[in-house]
Nucleic acid binder design. Sequence first.
DNA 1: TAGGAGGCTGTTAGCGCTAATACAAGGGAC
DNA 2: GTCCCTTGTATTAGCGCTAACAGCCTCCTA
Lengths: 338, 338
Amino acid sequence: MARPIVRLKDIADRTGFSVNTVSLALRDSPRIPEETRLMIRQAAEALNYLPNHIAKSLVSRETRTIGLVLTSITNPILTRVAQAIELRLAERGYLTLFATSNGDHQEEKKVIEMFRSRQVDGMLIYPRSHRELDHIRRLRSAGYPVVLLVGDNDAGVDVVSMDTRQGGYKAVRHLLERGHRRIGLIDGGQQRGNLEKQDGYVRALAEAGIAEDATLHAVPGTHSLMAGYDAMAELMARNNSMTAVLAATDSMALGALRWTQQHGVRVPEDMAIVGFDNIEFAEHAATPISTVDYAVDRVTELAVDRLIDLIRADGLPEAEVTLIEPGLVVRESSAGRR
Amino acid sequence: MARPIVRLKDIADRTGFSVNTVSLALRDSPRIPEETRLMIRQAAEALNYLPNHIAKSLVSRETRTIGLVLTSITNPILTRVAQAIELRLAERGYLTLFATSNGDHQEEKKVIEMFRSRQVDGMLIYPRSHRELDHIRRLRSAGYPVVLLVGDNDAGVDVVSMDTRQGGYKAVRHLLERGHRRIGLIDGGQQRGNLEKQDGYVRALAEAGIAEDATLHAVPGTHSLMAGYDAMAELMARNNSMTAVLAATDSMALGALRWTQQHGVRVPEDMAIVGFDNIEFAEHAATPISTVDYAVDRVTELAVDRLIDLIRADGLPEAEVTLIEPGLVVRESSAGRR
DNA sequence: TAGGAGGCTGTTAGCGCTAATACAAGGGAC
DNA sequence: GTCCCTTGTATTAGCGCTAACAGCCTCCTA
């Protein structure tokens, strides 16, 4: 600790000018003549001066920092989202303060408070639950710029998100078109009321006149590959004559694929598999996996743009929900007709 | 913007006490009687007061924030590292300011300056090059607590890292013991002088009396699965009678595996494959991949502990380099003898 | 009953910076 | 020569907070 800090005062002492003159010179004020500016710049350089952003923030009331709240970064797609957001914010001159909620409501609230206390200019939040958003709505009504990275039309907060409901719908439509009737669903997140993917799944089936069947649903607790593997084992043990399965993440789809490999079930001949997110490992799996694409670049770009608009506006405008329609990437795992 | 801020002054006005008394009461000073404390607490609650951490930092000269610099978070193992670090720092009461250098030297320097300007209490850095560390050594001699997440004994800065040199050595020894003599290497990062894995590879071969053979080396530009795939294609095209290959990351090992699948090369019978990092996707690949384990928990725990020790010490102690010996996880991809 | 000793609270200064204002010197217009 | 305006700089105040010190009671003791 106790590293020596070079302040404006030190430059002032060295050059004989006042602190204020030094401040103005370093900020290229037109009121300071070229010659003075140069002298001061040189002194600053010689002393290896670095402005104290903390002090500046106290005066300017902006920190040029935004807070990013994720549930957990182990989900490969959230990783890519985090990376892309950091990059875009950096381009716009913002630094990213990062924290994870671990899917816990109290943690999420605590993290948001910490960010507020640190006076972040705005927040990007991937909420653990897509339904319980009261604490975030309160944030917004207190005047804080917030953009959610997942959510629904009725969120009451700004949202930029993939339309996963539509994604689920598209994936099931695709499977129906290939002749599948008994389609399984490996979901995740039901505990928190995040039902978008399931909604899409149900709607597509309903349109085709197919009733829901609980024996075709599995709800593992996590999104990991092993969770997908176990869920697949469970579904297969139920003897429900399933011929296709939709997994809520590619990791889980890979787990399901692994199960089929180990148990002599051919993909896609005996079992079609479709995942979500389009991660690299899904594309190059032993059997390349069909998937609902997550448009990382679109989502992050729009989300960051929107957040910065909110920050710059005075008085928050009406909340806006942007849902991006995902594309379906069809690969070998769901090829061919039944 | 322009959200209204509740300050100590507002609580003071409301309760009739002075700002100082309010400050003391909220910090549970023993000099403030219970009754006063309660009144003030209630007022604070009623006004929804949140301390301004920025102002506090200006006075206390600590921000309780550390800067984490990564090259890029798309490498799955760095993701896990980032997550684990954030978690451990949060436990210790620190927030994580996050930035990526994208493997660019100027970016790395710029990011470090931004962190300094924001008065972070310390930094954890995954440097793009394990050799060009002058700018980081300068940081240290200026009194900044820094811990590198990869590095060598002669770094001159604190390091907590996996011993990847030892990892490369162990992996090759393992292949040699299985009877392999023509062992390929798919590396990455040579451009920046990160030769640890290659060093270990070379040493193990030398000890076995096997000369280096340039036709067995491939150096893709990135760490991605496709990079591994392409490198494998290149190595196989060289007709170098290779029977085993060591890839610098599991992603690349998966890419190599994918190539063998598509070209009728049996693993491990015709080709053994060993990777680095032990990511979940390697464990559950079509052929489970042997790998050099990355002890995420050990590394991040020790790194964070060391950093906080440095922050608490007055006057930085001698730099300390901790290299953690990695374990080798043998799976199907390198099973059986030749 | 004077003189402390504590208990409680207020006042002042300062963290490093910016913004608003003040001021001194020089130059032109009349 | 006075007045005013411009140019360059210094002074002051204040961001929200903490730390050091100052002061005023009340109560106890000799």
